[in-house]
Design a binder for these strands. Structure first.
Lengths: 216, 216
DNA sequence: GCGACTATACTCGCACACGAGTACTCGTCG
DNA sequence: CGACGAGTACTCGTGTGCGAGTATAGTCGC
């Protein structure tokens, strides 16, 4: 379903979108992206940037416009987007928006092996996560709300980000409460498993059989 | 903050968790994981599995227990988890649970370049995403609810998954509505930009300046 | 006018993830 | 009874992501 792209690194998408405004050289793209916080504090991976730009050019999405040099500085190669590049950009966005794709967030991986810890420690760690997330969320939300001049569509990805983190906070808080007040079904089994180091055999079976059916 | 692991691939986490029950050979780990839907339909990457098991062993998290062969089949190497392996597993889970980490979902990347499309097409694509997600979500939720014997903690990651997808559906539906009924602030600018191909200069500036401040 | 520091603009090479291939075996169906 | 397909258990080669390094140019103090 999901067509294999010639350039699969999402940094390539950001690059295409950035050069679509006007021709520029790689370093300038990076500066622009950073200026926009496109990278939200994840700093640009220089190695990837030049590789990706090279690949985009190899596949005809970018073309060399020329190269300038200032003094004896390393020469800067100017790239412009091609028609194919614009098409690829549009097609890529279409796919990203319309096709929901199952991703594997790291937290979810952690949850799936939560049994390696005891319920008390799990509760402590969840509480820690919660407090960090709440603080960061409040800060970022305040920053976004302080921005009243830029219309919302230009910051729509930040809104999405906040909404998702919000949802996670709510979910984690719910789980934490259930562990703390002991209403989570199976809590006793979990504790028993952690204390004795072995899972009751009938549950082991169930978990295997059952889990193989859910998640389509 | 986030300590660099000797083995960073999350498949390694799954492997550690799987062999922590009893010694087994790589292929058996893969079968078990698959049986549990640990991989939720994303099939095991064979290349990575053997590389990862090799690395885990190289770093002392796994040890070779022996090797058996049935007839002239390729020999199966049995691995067992070491004390260091158990520690690494526990430490890794602790980190995954307690340290919230900023990830870059593909959909969010798509949203950030949504300007490459016009509002009408964007609305159509969002609607498509929505319908696919709603169907899959309903199926998976039904499957999870049909599972009444396994206590919830053993499927906690599926619950998290459903909750997040739920939140996304709600958010996308909200955005879609705002585009369709024209209440999204800046919609006219978006349309103008898409029709004429150029963004009003004062907005371009604003977007750059503003975006560089939010997202800490 | 010179040394230290930061910004600019890349290059290089390793390590790792992964897909596709291999080779053998067992069950089964005509 | 032999052929074929599905399962078993890996191996290997390729691509590519990315960190760390490099080299020059402005800039600011003293």
């Amino acid at each position: 379903m999901v067509k294999r792209r010639k350039v699969s690194n999402l940094l390539g998408l950001a690059v295409l979108s950035t050069v679509s405004a006007r021709p520029m050289h790689p370093y300038e793209m990076a500066s622009l992206m950073r200026a926009r916080g496109k990278d939200h504090d994840m700093d640009i991976k220089w190695g990837s940037l030049y590789t990706v730009v090279g690949n985009l050019q190899k596949h005809g999405y970018l073309a060399v416009e020329g190269s300038t040099r200032t003094g004896s500085r390393p020469e800067r190669t100017l790239y412009r987007i091609t028609r194919e590049g614009r098409e690829e950009l549009a097609d890529w966005v279409r796919e990203l928006i319309s096709v929901p794709e199952r991703e594997q967030p790291r937290f979810e991986a952690g949850l799936s092996v939560l049994g390696a810890l005891g319920p008390d420690e799990a509760a402590r760690l969840l509480a820690e996560r919660l407090s960090v997330m709440e603080r960061e969320l409040a800060d970022d939300r305040a920053a976004l709300e302080a921005e009243t001049e830029v219309p919302r569509i230009f910051l729509i990805e930040s809104e999405y980000d906040l909404a998702m983190r919000d949802a996670e906070v709510v979910w984690v808080r719910g789980l934490l409460t259930e562990i703390e007040d002991g209403t989570l079904p199976g809590l006793d089994l979990w504790r028993a498993f952690h204390d004795t180091g072995r899972v009751p055999p009938e549950i082991a079976e169930l978990a295997e059989r059952g889990a193989s059916q859910e998640q389509r």
